[in-house]
């Protein structure tokens, strides 16, 4: 009955990870609101709890009481499945993210051999949820948003994959723990200069696009598409989309830390777990900063950036790292 125990353990871990995602999403939404307020010389949430800290809990309670409205013309079944796909795809990303090290044990759900490939694969499932969610609403804005989002996410998956390849070359492994261990001497962002740095930049740009954030937020451009694929979603279904999106944001930032910024490693007195969160939240901060600083791309500019700039840069980058590794031997 060994496997029954394992299933129980996995289920318990899943609950833990899900709670972790829910809490970190709340933290990020709060941070986003406070930081955007700060950047725009406003105050932001402040009435619920000290400094508005409990605002997100109040919002969650409110959303739980909201009616689930499904438009008459919508495809009910697909409409209800789509947010679940997005949320679960984000959850599955977290299986391979190593959070830190306590003693000799690495805090990770499972160190899968094909770690980073698994991450890319699970992240790619989000597209299906967004595309079908936009279609099922039978709303013109939703469908346009869903299609745009799908075109954007698939376009940026290629540069994302190419920068993952760069890391795999440097680390000679796909396992996330192995990648962090391989950076013990020097973080990959500083290795093979400047190619390691380029790979990092490509990854960050592509992951911003994958999470549909400004300047790549065409799918939900509120000034032209209301809320894009989310237009018809209300209450908790809407929150599941948000959960997936912010969950993906944290997951992508965490993966950037694992692949380029040495994961949990850092100078001694600060524990590894804390290092990991400092680095990840620093990246999340950068993404929020970018969101409230830059305007939106046009769709042709967005696709040009991916196909005509990031893709060639990614390919040249791989060759550059290859040449660097050979010269070094």
């Amino acid at each position: 009955m060994n496997w029954l125990i394992e299933i129980g353990k996995a289920a318990a871990l899943c609950v833990v990870v899900f709670t972790f995602i829910a809490i970190s999403v709340m933290v990020m939404v709060y941070a986003e609101r406070k930081l955007s307020a700060w950047m725009q010389a406003r105050i932001g949430p402040r009435h619920v709890g000290p400094q508005g800290l409990l605002q997100l809990i109040a919002d969650t309670v409110k959303l739980l009481q909201k009616e689930n409205i499904v438009p008459r013309q919508a495809d009910y079944l697909v409409f209800s499945t789509a947010p679940l796909i997005v949320a679960v795809a984000a959850l599955l990303d977290y299986v391979v993210i190593p959070l830190g090290k306590v003693g000799d044990t690495v805090l990770i759900v499972r160190d899968i051999n094909i770690g980073v490939l698994y991450f890319a694969a699970m992240a790619s499932l989000t597209v299906i949820g967004i595309l079908t969610g936009g279609w099922a609403s039978n709303n013109k804005y939703s469908l346009l948003g869903g299609l745009r989002s799908a075109a954007q996410m698939v376009s940026y998956e290629i540069p994302l994959g190419l920068s993952i390849i760069c890391v795999a070359m440097l680390a000679s492994t796909l396992s996330t723990v192995g990648i962090v261990e391989a950076q013990r001497g020097r973080w990959f962002i500083f290795q093979a200069f400047p190619f390691g740095f380029f790979a990092f930049v490509v990854f960050i740009i592509a992951s911003t696009a994958e999470t549909n954030r400004v300047p790549f937020d065409l799918p939900e451009a509120e000034s032209e598409l209301i809320a894009g694929y989310q237009s018809e979603y209300t209450g908790m279904r809407f929150s599941l989309f948000q959960l997936g999106e912010y969950g993906e944001l944290f997951g992508m930032s965490a993966m950037a830390v694992v692949m380029f910024l040495g994961g949990w490693s850092g100078p001694r007195p600060v524990p590894p777990l804390l290092w990991f969160f400092i680095k990840t939240y620093a990246l999340v901060f950068v993404m929020i900063w970018v969101r409230w600083t830059y305007p939106r791309f046009r769709i042709d500019q967005l696709l040009n950036l991916s196909w005509k700039f990031l893709l060639p840069v990614g390919l040249v980058n791989i060759l550059g790292i290859g040449a660097w590794l050979i010269l070094l031997r």
């Binding site: 051999n113 094909i114 694969a121 499932l125 597209v127 299906i128």
Partner: peptide
């Protein structure tokens, strides 16, 4: 395992989107 990863990335993530 590697083929399994490909199956998710290419078929579930890419081919399905193309079909849609």
């Amino acid at each position: 395992e590697f083929v399994a990863g490909i199956q998710v990335l290419i078929y579930a993530g890419a081919i399905t989107v193309l079909i849609l």
